[in-house]
Simulated scan of single mutants.
Amino acid sequence: MNSRRDFLQKIGVSALMLQLGSVAFADTPNHFEQPYDGKVLRVAIMGLGGYGTRVAEAMKACTKAKLVGVISGTPSKIKEWQTKYNIPEKNCYNYENFDQVKNNKDIDAIYVITPNALHHSQVIRVAKAGKHAICEKPMALNAIEAQEMIDACKKANVKLLIGYRMHFEPHTLEVIRMRKAGEFGKIMFFQAQCGFKAGDPNQWRLNKALAGGGAMMDIGIYAINGARYMVGEEPIWVTAQETKTDSLKFKEGVDETIQFQLGFPSGAVASCLSSYNINYLDRFFMSGNNGFAEMQPSTGYGPIKGRTHKGELMQAITTHQTVQMDEMATIIFDDNKPIVPVNGEEGLKDLKIIEAIYLAAKIEKKVNLNI
């Protein structure tokens, strides 16, 4: 198993065809039932690896977004994608010349799906080319880079969106709705377990220069982001403890396992686990005075499953990236405001918390947050 994406793909592969077949029943009314004759977001994908391929396949079912271009450093991949997705030669670029996309009126947005360390420079180049930027998470290596990306997109008057697919997932949104409606009462506790055994020791996700860390940057961000949107507050302190059992595979600066705790203004607390050395971790649990919510799987590619004190969650099974890209089209074109934000500021908050977690683990003390 080489990465989180490999792990999620394996647990979700049997459900992908089910998702593609049942996405018409998504919780967004008439999402795929009525013909759409509005503006279509024309997207180029940068980075044609495993997740880029998953996004491309999911976009086949989109009604408001369309894959029209590719950017890659591998010529053979470009040729393959051209044939597979009917992409014209004029919409194909490499990492050296993609700035020329500024002269291409047939591309509206570029989805950056490359190693973490490349996001900063690539998104800034996308902004300077006058294109909207969609960036995979984590959006950068640190908060300073993230802020520079936000500033660059604002200066260029383009949108910057982060690939938070769970922010559009129906089961997730139902739990958020219930929490907002007070159906759980006062939220007291949240727990997130996110992890798997990382495979190839030479993969870029175990290279600090490319990944910016280890499990926390890759899978732990789901726990951080989930704690924020489930509890509905921003944390004000963090404590953390790191465990490393294999210092050859997980070198200096590449975390293997981190347990961390978050405190919220209301008094709610979160207990979270991020690991590259423990399999089958994909669970959220939240407890309030009047009820609870449990999701397992909670962030995998699907199908997401959950239950509350009222019974099993019966929301639609969707292909996350299909809904994500259609919803992002409405954000870009119509300035639609999603229930949970997916803008650059959202990504910046997660990075500030990640930095505080790393610091807390290092100094073995509570770190106060102001995000």
Rank of each mutant, 00 (worst) to 15 (best):
R4W: 13
L8A: 09
S14I: 10
A15S: 14
A15M: 11
L20P: 00
G38A: 01
V43W: 03
M46D: 02
M46R: 00
E57F: 09
P75K: 03
E89A: 04
N94E: 14
N94C: 08
Y95A: 01
K105Y: 09
D106A: 07
I110L: 06
H119I: 07
S121P: 05
V126N: 01
A129R: 04
A133P: 11
A133V: 13
E136P: 07
E136G: 15
P138H: 06
L141S: 13
N142G: 02
A156K: 00
N157A: 05
G163N: 11
H167S: 08
H171E: 13
I176Y: 10
A181V: 08
K186A: 11
F189V: 07
A192M: 05
C194P: 06
G195R: 00
Q203T: 15
N207P: 09
G213W: 03
M217N: 10
R228G: 05
E233S: 04
P235G: 03
V238H: 00
T243D: 14
T245F: 10
L248R: 15
V254W: 11
Q261M: 12
A268E: 07
S274V: 11
N279W: 14
N290C: 12
F292C: 09
S298Y: 09
P303H: 06
R307N: 13
H309Y: 04
G311V: 11
E312V: 14
Q315S: 15
A316S: 14
Q324A: 06
N336W: 08
G344V: 03
G344H: 10
G347K: 01
K352V: 14
K352Y: 10
I353S: 00
E355H: 07
I357W: 07
Y358P: 03
A361W: 06
I363V: 13
V367L: 03
N368F: 14
L369C: 06
